[in-house]
Design a protein around this nucleic acid. Structure first.
Length: 458
RNA sequence: GUGGGUAUAGCUCAGCUGGUAGAGCGCCGCCUUGUGGUGGCGGAUGUCGCGGGUUCGAGUCCCGUUACUCACCCCA
């Protein structure tokens, strides 16, 4: 069989990389649960009509079909879910009678999109979603709560003592604010204006200005929209700046108040690794957001785009009698980790969990080595027995290749353990010996210097 | 879906205007006969993405195809 080539857009990890990923996932789940979010998992497929509910994404949905279909197209068809929000909305409606509202859940799963892959864009990728959904109404303080939970989680994975990932910048805006501002200017097509303003991080301001004018805005209106979009503050000082533009509209007032609450309420969570800012050019392309919107940039990797996005939607779901408003945010775990891992900026120092390799003197001694291993395991020390009784030099190299820090030998003087990094070898009792806590699990290290060079060279 | 680039050893890549396939790293062995790493010496490895064409001769030129990749669209 010829060597298979990788399938573009379907990233896979080597064991050491996967260890980093599971550590991140565990950390996220822990923080979400600390904030009282329950975990759920939804099935991978949804009926096509559910998936297409959100409009124009139909081309990117992977359709599920049996290889030997008698007559295709008879049923409504199934597709792989495109995000975790649509399945969640369906889940809420389906189980509304059994859930308590406001309902808070987190969900960490793969999603699939039939896009053209690129750096940071995949066809199969993992998202970590948190949402809060209410029945009938959902107070805006939950917008702040969502921001705080995700800031806490990001702060944890960026903290040097936990994982030490690069820092994050959570950018918040509010659609009521920008829509109210546009309405106050007398602009008709609020959605189109917002969509064009959203291009500001890719296109220069004068190009966006041209497109705004082409879309029907006066030059005066276009300039005012751009002025609003340049406002970006780490605190609530944006309020005065917006007021200074002199536009009046009730929706604008509402948006300003909501955004100020979120920014002010997050102040206590800000560290040098995790910041928040009111960035009034953030609009988001998706049309179902109705208030708060979030995007997140990874320091040193701005070209990846937003790695964590979401917002408030007044109608996540509706059964005709009750509408369920929600607010949520979704972390692109793959977008965050795949580039860092592939560039070698994030590495684990071990490809196996083993802390100890139990050396094997000869095949006749395998049972004895197994006994030593069992003793180590009884006190929680992951270990493995050497696969063959090679020369000890080879066995040490076997451990070194895998990053296993210790080798346990049976000697005439009893068991001795060698730290192959220092070369130090001491007699131990395998039933009670444990490694220093730092050696118990693979160590994850981050090097930002190489990537920063790459980024600046571009 | 639209437009560009690339495809040679396990990895990163060289290979000029066509002339029988290379380097570095890695891997294996020995120096070192049961305690690795450094050093020295030696060794193995290729359908040159695939198919066709031009030619005495194609990794190299032409056409097609597939995969990968970058940008647009959109988004985590």
């Amino acid at each position: 069989m010829a060597k298979p080539t990788p399938l573009s857009g379907f990233p896979e990890f080597l064991p050491a990389q996967r260890y980093v990923e599971t550590t991140v996932l565990d950390t996220l789940a822990t923080v979400f649960e600390l904030h009282g979010f329950a975990n759920i998992e939804t099935r991978a497929v949804e009926p096509m009509d559910q998936l297409l509910r959100k409009g124009d994404t139909s081309k990117e949905v992977y359709v599920l079909r049996r290889l030997q279909e008698e007559d295709g197209g008879k049923d409504k068809g199934l597709g792989l879910h495109f995000d975790l929000t649509v399945p969640f909305a369906r889940y809420v409606l389906e189980n509304a009678g059994k859930l308590e509202f406001p309902f808070r859940r987190y969900q960490i799963q793969k999603v699939w999109r039939g896009e053209r892959p690129q750096d940071g864009r995949y066809r199969e990728f993992a998202q970590a979603d948190i949402d809060i959904v209410g029945a009938g109404e959902l107070p805006v303080h939950h917008d702040l709560e969502i921001a705080r939970v995700m800031l806490d989680a990001l702060g944890r994975i960026a903290h040097p003592d936990v994982l030490g990932l690069p820092g994050f910048r959570l950018q918040v805006n509010n659609r009521k604010l920008i829509q109210g501002f546009y309405a106050g200017l007398g602009i008709d097509d609020l959605d189109e204006t917002m969509r064009l303003i959203d291009k500001l991080d890719k296109l220069p301001a004068d190009a966006v200005r041209t497109q705004l004018v082409e879309s029907g805005l006066s030059e005066e209106q276009a300039d005012r929209c751009l002025e609003l979009a340049t406002i970006c503050t780490p605190d609530t000082s944006f309020v005065d700046k917006v007021r200074g533009l002199g536009v009046e509209h009730p929706l604008l007032d509402e948006g300003l108040a909501e955004l100020a609450d979120v920014v002010a309420g997050c102040a206590a969570l800000v560290t040098d690794r995790v910041r928040i800012e009111a960035d009034l050019k953030i609009a988001r392309g998706l049309d179902y957001y109705t208030g708060t919107v979030f995007e997140t940039r990874l320091d040193g990797h701005e070209s990846l785009g937003s790695i964590c996005s979401g917002g408030r939607y007044d109608s996540l779901a509706s059964d005709g009698r009750t509408t369920y408003p929600g607010v949520g945010i979704s972390l692109g775990v793959s977008r965050l980790l795949v580039p860092l891992l592939n560039r070698g900026e994030l590495v684990a120092d071990r490809s196996v969990p083993s802390v100890v390799l139990v050396a094997l003197t000869d095949e006749a001694g395998r049972a004895d080595s197994d006994t030593l291993a069992t003793q180590l395991r009884s006190s929680g020390v992951p270990c493995e027995v050497a696969p063959s009784p090679q020369k000890f030099g080879k066995q040490i190299r076997y451990a070194e290749r895998r990053g296993i820090p210790y080798v346990l030998f049976s000697t005439e003087d009893g068991p001795q353990i060698k730290d192959i990094r220092s070369g130090e070898q001491v007699a131990v009792d395998p039933a009670t010996w444990t490694p220093p806590p730092a050696d118990l699990k693979p160590r994850i290290t981050v090097s930002t210097s190489t990537t920063n060079q790459m980024e600046t060279e571009k």
